[in-house]
Nucleic acid binder design. Structure first.
Length: 736
DNA sequence: AGCACGCCGACT
DNA sequence: GTCGGCGTGCTC
């Protein structure tokens, strides 16, 4: 795209196209006062209706020919670097791909209003006049500190002179000192690429060499694959080091804020300084510094959640996507995009090297490797002793527990052997609370959420029934609200609390800790419990997904998965992949001390489907086997990555109106070769936070441009009115 | 997105 | 009589 096309000639007033961070796809035309030096990407303030908004200059001229009298002038330019070509192209690209108005994508770039005001200069003081008449001791010490001629901060100077800031203020009043603006400090200490280069294994060295080369060669995508503990981080930090040596910036995406802590330590060990952080919990002042620092090229490395993808890097050389398979990279709110894929797009636009790191890569990424689009580097396990754990299955149909119990005798025996050796066992169940469903034995009443189509989960520790979707909570009643029967309520199915109860009954003298995200006492309590576990003050850990990543359990040697089939049952195209990834991750928490360093521990999976490819792959400790069969399945079903899937989601407060609109939309779907629209008849109607939701699934056997199809469809479809809303997800990660 | 302008129900 | 609900439409 030629951004300079249609530049105003000679006498005609200069007009610029400005993109605004509102739900508009179009740019608006504004008069450009000649004294403002505008360039493409300039961040400007303009009037819109009654409001003043911050937007960005997207182009010059006025191809649409808006009548001159309608045009208002640009009010001012911000003292911040203009958004670069690659970032502006990224905004256009993401908007087009996700069918989101460009303004809403720009919003993700400009979501830092504080950053756009010039950073308030730190007030400093320096010597400006003669010594005061009354020269006290404290005053003498202050003046002595200023002999060097530099300006000091008020508080810094007072502290250095061993006195209070009041003394400094007094000298300012006396005219001895003056207040001056100090230049803002650098937002982060620069990392040193050669600070603490680790000794790498020969395999790591080979991989690191490849990545270093990639970091110097413009755009490429490399999958870095290796089991937990194989040293992927050490390897990709060498690509980071290379980018730093070349003076280019680095973005490291991590799936969750909670995981950044451990990573930051790792980083500062290697580079002697912390990277800048970017996620929703970074306080406003620091956000401002990071945003500006990134734009001005003064921040060399950012570690952040998916929103960091839209930071205005001045010269981005390397993008790392850590745990690239993680579902947290899919953004569902506002614009729906997949940060891993958009990172690849940004890498292409910025001429950067993209590194995708994972022990269990997504099928999308593996398919791109097979097609020759991405390179693949495998870190073999043998180098560090890391490998997949030994896995055994318990066939719950033959060797399961008695009715009403959830731990099979085989699993109990294994836990007993483990704890009696003084080691720890983990019982993993990805379900919070005591039981996922409560029903009345007398009348069959099931406790359901008022706002959502979900069961209320029994939280016995708290004495409540809660919806995990919207948070709706009621006290656990004594009698059935439908038939009034007393003592007729039964809990169906297990949650971690119930497993804890069962484990306590089986192992009355063992120390048991339950870890889940809804734990009473919050994050501090969680940290404390983790500390207890690390110190060996616990025999059996019972946990949800929260134990699957991040934390390390040094004394853990056995992982028992209470329900390995959980998550396989939905008609989700990625169910098998997700389950495989989760089970590899959680069983990988087990290790065994001995020889040189850790070696893998044991995993026991309770399953009703021992012949399922996921279980078979885990038992054989051969992930390639899983990838091969799953690839074939997906290919046969034309599911991603061999076909495209999209969802048109209709939601509304009125159920019949929502269904009607979904039907009307489905009727309006154009016929197209190889594209099929499913629903609304086959699509379940869900109630989510008080709104009815229906999905129309759009499936394409080929990798055709579904976006174009969807655009054409929705342009011709009846418009949504009232509370009805239509949302498009061009790459849904589940059917739910 | 946000804001004004609009047209219908209960009240300082 | 107004205050205020949120449905509709526009913003250079």
């Amino acid at each position: 795209m030629d951004l300079l096309s249609g530049e105003a000639d000679g006498a005609a007033p200069a007009v610029v196209q400005v993109l605004l961070p509102v739900a508009l796809d179009k740019t608006y035309s504004y008069l450009a006062p000649p004294d403002l030096r505008l360039v493409p990407g300039s961040i400007v303030t303009v009037p819109l209706g009654t409001r003043k908004l911050i937007g960005a200059v997207w182009a010059f001229g006025d191809p649409a020919g808006v009548p001159l009298k309608k045009l208002k002038p640009v009010l001012g330019v911000h003292d911040a670097p203009a958004l670069g070509d690659p970032l502006r192209t990224l905004v256009d690209w993401v908007a087009r791909y996700t069918l989101t108005p460009r303004g809403m994508v720009l919003r993700m770039v400009l979501r830092v209003p504080e950053a756009l005001a010039p950073e308030p200069a730190v007030p400093g003081v320096r010597r400006a006049g003669p010594a005061p008449e009354r020269l006290t001791d404290a005053r003498r010490r202050v003046l002595a500190r200023l002999e060097d001629g530099f300006a000091w901060t008020r508080t810094g100077l007072a502290a250095a002179a061993g006195t209070s800031p009041g003394v400094v203020d007094g000298l300012v009043t006396a005219g001895t000192l003056e207040v001056v603006a100090l230049p803002p400090g650098p937002p982060v200490h620069p990392p040193d690429p050669d600070f603490n280069a680790r000794a790498l294994t020969p395999d790591q060295v080979r991989a690191a060499d490849e990545l270093r080369r990639a970091a110097g060669e413009g755009f490429s995508v490399t999958l870095l694959e290796g089991v937990t503990g194989a040293g992927k981080t050490d390897v990709y930090l060498e690509a980071v080091a290379e980018a730093l040596r070349r003076g280019r910036q680095v973005l490291i995406l991590v799936p969750e804020i909670a995981l950044t802590r451990a990573f930051l330590e790792r980083f500062s060990e290697r580079f002697g300084a912390n990277p800048a952080e970017w996620h929703s919990d970074v306080p406003p002042k620091q956000r401002m510094r990071v945003w500006r620092g990134v734009a001005e090229g003064r921040v060399p490395v950012v570690v952040g959640a998916r929103s960091a993808l839209f930071l205005p890097f001045a010269d981005l050389g390397v993008i790392v996507v850590d745990e690239e398979h993680d579902a947290a990279y899919k953004q569902e709110e506002h614009a729906t995009y997949h940060a891993r894929d958009m990172a690849v797009v940004r890498g292409r636009l910025e001429e950067a090297a993209v590194v995708l790191s994972s022990a269990t890569p997504s099928l999308e990424t593996r398919a791109n490797v097979e097609r020759g689009r991405y390179r693949r580097l495998v870190l073999p396990a043998r180098a560090t002793g890391a490998a997949l754990p030994e896995i055994a299955l318990i066939d719950m149909r033959r060797a399961g527990p008695e009715k009403g119990r959830f731990l099979a005798p085989g699993l109990i025996a294994a836990v007993r052997r483990t704890v009696e050796k003084g080691e720890q066992a983990l019982l993993f169940l990805n379900r919070r609370g005591f039981a996922p469903l409560t029903l009345c034995r007398a009348c069959g009443h099931r406790f359901q959420c008022d706002n959502c189509s979900t069961w209320l989960v029994d939280h016995r520790f708290r004495g409540t029934l809660s919806c995990h979707h919207c948070g709706h909570t009621v006290r656990r009643p004594e009698s059935c609200p439908a038939c009034g029967a007393l003592d007729s309520l039964v809990a169906c199915g297990p949650g971690v609390e119930r497993i804890a109860e069962e484990a306590a009954a089986v192992f009355p003298d063992k120390r048991i800790i339950v870890l889940s995200s809804d734990m009473l006492g919050g994050i501090q309590r969680l940290r404390a419990e983790l500390q207890v576990i690390a110190e060996g003050g616990c025999d059996i850990v019972i946990g949800t997904q929260i134990v699957a990543k991040g934390h390390t359990f040094p004394k853990l040697t056995l992982v028992g998965v209470v329900d390995a089939d959980l998550g396989l049952s939905h008609g989700d195209p990625r169910a098998a992949e997700r389950t495989f990834q989760l089970l590899v991750q959680v069983t990988g928490r087990a290790g065994r001390l001995g020889g040189e360093g850790m070696s893998p521990g044991f995993g026991i999976l309770q399953t009703f489907a021992p012949e399922h490819p996921v279980m078979a792959a885990l038992v054989s400790r051969d992930p390639e086997r899983f990838y091969a069969t799953e690839m074939e399945e997906r290919r046969a079903a034309s599911m991603p990555p061999f076909g495209r899937l999209a969802a048109v989601i209709v939601s509304g407060t009125d159920r019949p109106a929502t269904e009607d609109h979904a039907r009307a939309l489905a009727r309006a779907a154009p016929m197209a070769e190889g594209i099929e629209v499913l629903g609304p008849a086959d699509a379940p109607l869900a109630l989510v936070r008080g709104r009815h939701r229906l999905r129309l699934l759009v499936q394409s056997g080929r990798e055709s441009d579904l976006s174009a199809y969807l655009r054409a469809w929705l342009a011709a479809a009846p418009p949504a009115r009232g509370s009805l809303a239509v949302q498009v997800d061009v790459d849904p990660q589940s059917f739910l």
